[in-house]
Structure formats: C-alpha cells, structure tokens
C-alpha cells in the first residue's frame, strides 16, 4: 500500500527517533516470556496465564480462540496498553514496560511502529469526522501538518473512502467504520499491526475487502498479528496459528495443521456440531471447521 512512498521518518522528530530505535537489532518483533495478566486484583482466573511466545519480524500470526480465551488481552499487552502482572514482554529487543512508555522518545517510536485496530470500531472512531480521525495519530506523533494532509488524502483514496471524508463516524455503516478504523492506524505505516477480530460483524463483501487489504498491506514485509475466531480467513491472513484457551497457549502451528485438527478445534470451541440442510433436503448435525466443508 505505501510501498514506494517516502517513509515519514524522513521528516522532523520521527526521523531522529526512528533512527535511534532502528538500532534495536533483533529479528523478533515480540518476545513474550511467562506472561500472566489479571483484570483487577480480585479476579479469580488470570486472563493470560504463563504465555510464552516469540513473533519474528515479518511474520503473519493468527491468534485463535473462543470468546474469553485471552486473545484481545494479549493484543492489548503487546500494544503497551496493559502491563503484565508477571513475566516480560520485549518489543524489537527492548523491554516493553510502563516505565519505558513514560519516556517520550521510546513512546513515540513504539506508537509509530506498533498499531492496534480495536474490535469495536466505535471505540476507535472518537473524532468528529473521518478526516480528523485518520489525522489523529499523525498529529499526536507531531508529523508536519502539510504532510499529514497529504497522507490523509492518499489514505482516503487507497481505502476508497474519500467520499466519507467529512462524514461523522456515527453516520457510517459497519464496513465503512472498519475501513476508517484501519485507515486511522495504517496511515502511521507501522511495522507491526495488531488486529482484534478485523472481520467481526461485517457483511461478506466488507470482510473480503478487509482481508484483501491485509494481504496486500506492506507486501508481506510487515508483522501482522490477528486475533480471530473466524477460521475462514485464517489461511489467507496467517503463516502461523497460535491457539488460546483459558488464557493459555494450547497449540501452535501452520494454518493447514491447526485447521486440520478437528479434535483441537472442537476442544477449544472454535468449531461446533451444527445442524445444516443439504441440497437433497437432508438435515443433520455434525461438527466441521468453517474453513472447509467437504460434503
């Protein structure tokens, strides 16, 4: 999408920071070790429990799991919004802690390089208009204003939402909101993008548009971590799957292996026995992953 265009590091403050932090020489985008996180002191079960995970740069990872399995919490930890109760998280070889994010230089570099698309676009679209929404991130990162105007215009064209430029978010459809939410983080041209259920509650056409965008984005050079329980899209958007259940990793592997393991998928509530009607009028129950249906 933005390949071939000059990177924003070339201008102003971001240049200095990016150069400084490009010294973070490691092949890993994230290294998570024995991570535990609880919502509130009194919560009985941890949302994440002893998670250890390494995500190399440029890898596309699908975090699979049923509702409440810890997928969204992990993404928020990786985005520096929640901090572990125990264990550690490293980003590009540097510790990702609350203290480090208090440092302005580190925070600017991190927010520039790692971006999260929330599951509920209404959470993410807080600005009065679509244009303002897409400009919000670059403004916070103090990009030059002329550059922001140019980039926002290009992003609106790229995602085919230029006609929505002056619209208020509450006037948009679900698919439009999702595209604006994506635009609002893709404009930062991050090295890592974290996506929380990117295709949830979208109609088939909007789902396909979002998936196409994710496949094309960065030409495969960027790290894409997608939390989802939509198995249909996994083979297209991921090179590796990590399956969560009850805050723990229960399986890892390539999509073909994970999606082929019906027992695993049934145990983790990613597939279910359901009733469906065949063309000959027969109706029966049986489990199958939504990714394929052979009969």
């Amino acid at each position: 999408m933005t390949r071939g265009e000059p990177r924003i590091e070339d201008s102003g403050r971001e240049g200095t920071l990016s150069t400084q932090h490009s010294a973070l020489g490691t092949d890993l985008a994230f290294a998570v070790r024995d991570l535990t996180y609880r919502y509130g002191v009194g919560s009985a079960a941890p949302a994440l429990d002893g998670v250890t995970l390494a995500i190399p740069r440029g890898e596309r990872v699908a975090i699979l799991g049923a509702n409440g399995s810890g997928k969204s919490t992990l993404l928020r930890v990786l985005d520096g919004l929640y901090f572990p109760d125990s264990g550690s998280v490293e980003v590009f070889g540097e510790p990702l802690t609350e203290e480090r994010l208090q440092e302005e230089d580190f925070a600017f570099a991190f927010r520039r390089r790692v971006a999260l698309v929330f599951q509920n676009p209404d959470v993410q679209l807080f600005s009065p208009t679509v244009f303002d929404e897409i400009a919000f991130g670059p403004l916070q990162l103090r990009w030059p204003k002329d550059e922001i105007r140019r980039r926002v215009g290009a992003m609106l064209e790229l995602l085919e939402i230029a006609h929505l430029k002056d619209r208020a978010p509450h006037r948009l459809s679900g698919g439009e909101k999702k595209r604006v939410a994506l635009a609002s983080v893709l404009i930062l041209d991050p090295e890592v993008i974290l996506l929380d259920e990117p295709t949830a509650a979208l109609d088939p056409r909007s789902q396909s548009q979002v998936v196409d965008l994710l496949i094309d984005w960065g030409g495969g050079a960027r790290t894409v971590i997608t939390a989802t329980h939509d198995l249909d899209t996994v083979p297209e958007i991921a090179d590796r799957c990590v399956v969560f259940q009850g805050g723990r990793i229960v399986a890892e592997g390539p999509p073909v292996a994970i999606l082929g393991d019906e027992d695993l998928l049934r145990r983790t509530n990613l597939i279910h026995a359901h009733r469906h009607l065949h063309a000959d009028g027969r109706m029966h129950y049986h489990p199958h992953p939504h990714a394929r249906h052979d009969h």
């Binding site: 928020r76 985005d79 919004l81 302005e104 925070a107 600017f108 927010r111 520039r112 971006a115 999260l116 929330f118 509920n120 959470v123 993410q124 807080f126 919000f136 991130g137 916070q140 990162l141 609002s184 983080v185 930062l188």
Partner: peptide
C-alpha cells in the same frame, strides 16, 4: 475506558 485506550494506542499522551 476503551476510547482512552484507543487514543493512547495512537500516541495520545
């Protein structure tokens, strides 16, 4: 709370 996190995520300080 969610909106604040979304703002933080995009560099709001």
């Amino acid at each position: 709370n969610e909106v604040y996190l979304a703002m933080q995520s995009r560099g709001f300080r």
